[in-house]
Design a protein around this nucleic acid. Structure first.
Lengths: 175, 175
DNA sequence: TATTGTTATACTCTATAACTATA
DNA sequence: TATAGTTATAGAGTATAACAATA
């Protein structure tokens, strides 16, 4: 888990409450909390939802294809599909062209559940945005989409100066 | 770890790329990746940074107070302060009023490092926002702050209809 | 008795590596 | 030989419970 910060957490100082990282984290966790609640009982949680979403597409995907797309380890994907299959939400079908691979396909039950989950997730989204009037909601989403589109464009901030070096650096040193 | 989704991940469908949850996650992870790099070598990572931030305040905090404020378990806080103390960034001082509690106070070294880390985190912030022109950056941050301020106002989306119930529900049922 | 802090233990999640069956 | 999938093992991170010192 990354950046777990359960429940309400107070800002270390008034200034921090205006930091991008802090506010982004607060809003993201508020959404994640709602979304986690929606997918809580689904096998695999939010990851199960992602797999189910892909499994409901027309073109079938292999397990390794799913793993690569969703950034999940191949070995984890096995357990994930196992659980979803046991719940009757997806099926494994041998790929005709390559008998090594399984295609993961949503069952009718899985597709019905997916539609309901998506509707509930839309509610969670609306809940998070409810603090803004409609036209500002649209502005926020539009700006967020543009940020997301360029999020992976450049390399992250250079780590030329590590903490280890910082610990021995003097105040005047450039970092 | 919550919502781990390493590296670049493709959206399950074109529509999803416009979902709030998806875009929020992409931008948050982009920032988290930069921020994690900044605090990578700090004992305790980003949590160590949070503790250090509180420890640098004027009014000293007890370990249990820190744990409660930051949503960290008491037992984890012990290890965290141990590591920060070993690195010479904070000190434990017996509280005069209550000899059971330790006050966690940043050392001069800790305060210097904190100032540098905060400067680097500001760079990470600027990096994430770089896709937008200045006046839209200000708009985004303002809207985000208003969302964050109301993030914990109401209860999360009702989970009156759990997945377990969904699995047995018929298409017409209200959820 | 309740609380602060510490320690030890167990549990969950994930990653690594070895194995099979196909290609 | 290389790849898809499976399984087993080990590791990190976290939570649970018991303990000592103090209130």
């Amino acid at each position: 888990m990354l950046w777990g910060m359960p429940e309400a957490v107070a800002a270390p100082s008034p200034g921090v409450a205006r930091d991008l990282g802090w506010t982004l984290g607060v809003v993201f966790r508020a959404y994640a909390k709602s979304a986690t609640g929606v997918t809580a009982d689904l096998p695999g949680g939010h990851r199960g939802h992602q797999v189910l979403t892909w499994a409901a597409r027309e073109t079938p995907m292999s397990q390794s294809g799913l793993a690569q797309q969703l950034g999940i380890d191949r070995t984890v994907m096995t357990y994930l599909v196992d659980d979803l299959e046991r719940a009757g939400l997806v099926e494994r079908r041998r790929a005709p062209a390559d008998r090594r691979t399984w295609h993961v396909v949503a069952t009718e039950t899985g597709e019905q559940l997916l539609r309901r989950l998506d509707a509930q997730l839309a509610q969670a989204e609306a809940h998070v945005l409810a603090a803004l009037p409609p036209h500002e909601q649209a502005t926020f989403k539009e700006l967020l989409q543009r940020l997301a589109a360029h999020a992976n464009d450049r390399d992250p901030v250079g780590d030329a100066c590590t903490v280890a070096e910082e610990l021995t650096a003097r105040p005047g040193d450039a970092c």
